[in-house]
Simulated scan of single mutants.
Amino acid sequence: MKQNFTVRQGALDGVEVFLSVAQHRSFRRAAAELGVTPSAVSQTVRVLEARIGAALFIRTTRSVGLTDAGERFLSHAKPAFDELVAASEVARGLGQRPTGLLRLSVPRAVVPILLEPLIASFCQAYPEVEVEIATSKELIDLAAEGFDAGIRLGQFVDADMVAIPLTPPFHLVVVGSPAYFAARSRPMHTDDLRQHACLRWRRSSGAIALWSFNDKGHAIEIAVSGPFIANDFSTMLGAAVEGMGLAQLPEPMAAEGLRAGKLVHVLGPFAPVIPGVFLYYPGRRQMTPKLRAFIDHVKSRAADQSKVISAPGLPEST
């Protein structure tokens, strides 16, 4: 069957012209208001009448009036058209200034350290923007799930995303509690981990993550073993503090425990550097004002390194 590729005339064609004529009771004044010729207005009204199947105006040489059908059409068309104009203004406002709902997908542990101060200052600066935070340890399709942006560790951000750093790079560190080391010697080399209970972390894919190290400039990964598996860094941190075993964590996340003496740092010379935490969003989609405002706000905060993470609580990876 042959397809028709022409655009069908819609029910709204000619309505604005009709409303202008009905308001002014004049084709000439309506033409002046719309910036067209009186003949164009007359032709548009004739097409509208033909499509509706009824005369809408009574025309004389001196005046223009509405028929019964025209009065009835006006009573329904004007409020509907006003609603359409109002809807257009709302949409135009969303496209021109920061307003509406900004949805962010973030790991749970990033909220109190990064997002609470950042969101508080952003909401104060942009009161017309509502911010929704959805915590998830999984990497999701931002566009498909209706999110404007996400926050993750840099190594887990896809290459086709635009990524903005929220923190400087930092180390992955191996830590254990003093109680754990009370009965065990500290590992001096990565090979020594075979004799230690290592707390492991399961990715959202279901795989157990390897531990990463830097051995004299060479990146290596080691499969460790131990009595405990978790799917987020926060749980692993708590298990390490309780003396269940060694954990490999982002350095800022372990910083408070190290300062308080609840954790001990080992294998320092082998600690790898990871990129840090990033805000990311799809580069191919049109930038909305609310997202642009948030990105600019993030950049202004990130420029002041004293306000960027220097305390524990970096996000769980995925």
Rank of each mutant, 00 (worst) to 15 (best):
T6R: 13
V7D: 12
G14A: 14
F18Q: 01
V21M: 06
H24V: 03
S26W: 07
L34W: 06
G35C: 03
P38E: 03
P38S: 07
S39Y: 11
S39G: 13
S42C: 03
S42I: 02
R46T: 08
L48F: 04
E49D: 11
A50K: 15
R51E: 08
G53H: 14
A55C: 08
L56N: 05
F57Y: 10
F57E: 02
T60F: 05
R62G: 09
S63R: 14
L66P: 06
T67R: 00
T67K: 03
A69N: 00
A69W: 01
E71D: 10
F73D: 00
L74C: 03
S75R: 13
S75M: 11
S75V: 10
H76P: 00
H76V: 11
P79C: 07
A80M: 14
E83I: 13
V85M: 12
E89M: 14
E89H: 12
V90I: 15
G95M: 14
P98Q: 07
T99I: 12
L101W: 07
R103Q: 08
L104Q: 00
V106K: 02
I113A: 15
E116S: 13
E116P: 04
P117L: 09
L118F: 06
I119Q: 08
I119P: 00
A120P: 03
S121V: 07
Q124S: 13
Q124D: 15
Y126N: 11
E130D: 15
V131S: 00
V131R: 06
E132L: 09
T135G: 01
S136Q: 12
S136A: 13
K137F: 14
E138M: 11
A144N: 02
A144M: 02
R152W: 11
L153K: 06
V157P: 01
M161A: 10
A163Y: 03
I164F: 04
T167D: 01
P169M: 01
H171E: 13
V174I: 10
V175H: 00
P178A: 07
F181L: 02
F181T: 03
A182W: 01
R194D: 15
Q195P: 01
H196I: 09
R200V: 05
R203V: 07
S205K: 05
I208H: 02
I208R: 04
A209M: 15
A209F: 05
L210H: 15
L210F: 14
W211I: 04
N214C: 14
K216N: 15
H218V: 11
H218D: 09
A219E: 12
I220K: 11
I222D: 03
S225M: 05
I229Q: 07
A230H: 01
F233R: 04
T235L: 10
T235M: 05
G238V: 08
G238D: 12
A239S: 09
E242D: 15
G245P: 04
Q248A: 01
Q248N: 06
E251P: 02
E251S: 08
P252W: 00
A255I: 02
E256I: 06
R259S: 10
R259E: 15
H265Q: 15
V266F: 06
F270K: 04
G276R: 04
V277W: 00
V277F: 00
Y280I: 04
Y280P: 03
R285M: 14
K290I: 03
R292C: 11
H297M: 05
S300Q: 13
A302E: 05
A303M: 07
S306K: 10
S306D: 14
K307W: 02
A311V: 11
G313Q: 03
L314H: 00
L314W: 02
P315E: 00
P315C: 05
P315A: 07
E316H: 10
T318D: 14
